[in-house]
Computed example of a mutant assay.
Amino acid sequence: MTKQSFEGVSEGRRRNMQSNKSRDTKPELLVRRLLHGLGYRYALHRHDLPGRPDLVFPSRKAIVEVRGCFWHGHGCALGQMPKSRQDYWSPKLRATRKRDASNKKALEEAGWRVHEVWECDLRTGPSSIIGPLQEFLGPPRSQS
């Protein structure tokens, strides 16, 4: 992020924004623990795939992306556009959605199946995502 991006922003807000992580977020760690507990094994953030997907299941040709509603422009209450500095946020979030769509298209063209888990779905409880994830991934492999 350029210095100009933070023009007119307090030092506290600037530090807060810079501390946001792109990986190992609370929602991502929750999904990882949940899937591991169900017996699924996966690779993390593979550098050889477009967008460095969160969870990669190579033998299933499947990818699970854990999306933050705000950062990825979800239409839910958590994904609402801020009322201040819309000249900054609007292009930034629009670019993120465009990049997400481009990465998903590239993955699908390469033969991968992609499933998105949204932060707001996790807030209703992990049980709300278990069924859709199991349906998407199929049964876990037996651990011999």
Results as ranks from 00 to 15, higher is better:
residue 3 K to D: 13
residue 4 Q to G: 01
residue 5 S to F: 14
residue 7 E to M: 09
residue 8 G to I: 06
residue 9 V to P: 00
residue 10 S to V: 04
residue 13 R to L: 14
residue 15 R to K: 14
residue 16 N to S: 12
residue 17 M to A: 13
residue 22 S to G: 15
residue 24 D to R: 09
residue 25 T to R: 02
residue 27 P to I: 11
residue 34 L to A: 10
residue 34 L to W: 04
residue 34 L to T: 15
residue 35 L to A: 11
residue 36 H to G: 11
residue 36 H to V: 02
residue 38 L to H: 08
residue 39 G to M: 06
residue 44 L to F: 04
residue 44 L to Q: 07
residue 46 R to L: 07
residue 52 R to I: 01
residue 60 R to W: 05
residue 61 K to V: 05
residue 64 V to T: 07
residue 70 F to P: 01
residue 71 W to F: 08
residue 71 W to Y: 12
residue 73 G to I: 01
residue 73 G to Q: 06
residue 74 H to A: 02
residue 75 G to I: 01
residue 76 C to P: 00
residue 77 A to Q: 08
residue 78 L to W: 00
residue 78 L to N: 02
residue 79 G to I: 11
residue 79 G to K: 08
residue 82 P to G: 03
residue 85 R to H: 06
residue 90 S to C: 06
residue 92 K to A: 06
residue 94 R to E: 14
residue 95 A to Q: 12
residue 95 A to F: 04
residue 97 R to D: 04
residue 99 R to V: 01
residue 105 K to N: 05
residue 105 K to R: 15
residue 106 A to H: 00
residue 107 L to A: 02
residue 108 E to N: 10
residue 115 H to E: 09
residue 117 V to G: 01
residue 120 C to N: 09
residue 121 D to F: 10
residue 122 L to G: 03
residue 124 T to D: 13
residue 127 S to F: 06
residue 129 I to G: 00
residue 134 Q to D: 07
residue 137 L to R: 13
residue 138 G to V: 08
residue 139 P to T: 11
residue 142 S to T: 13
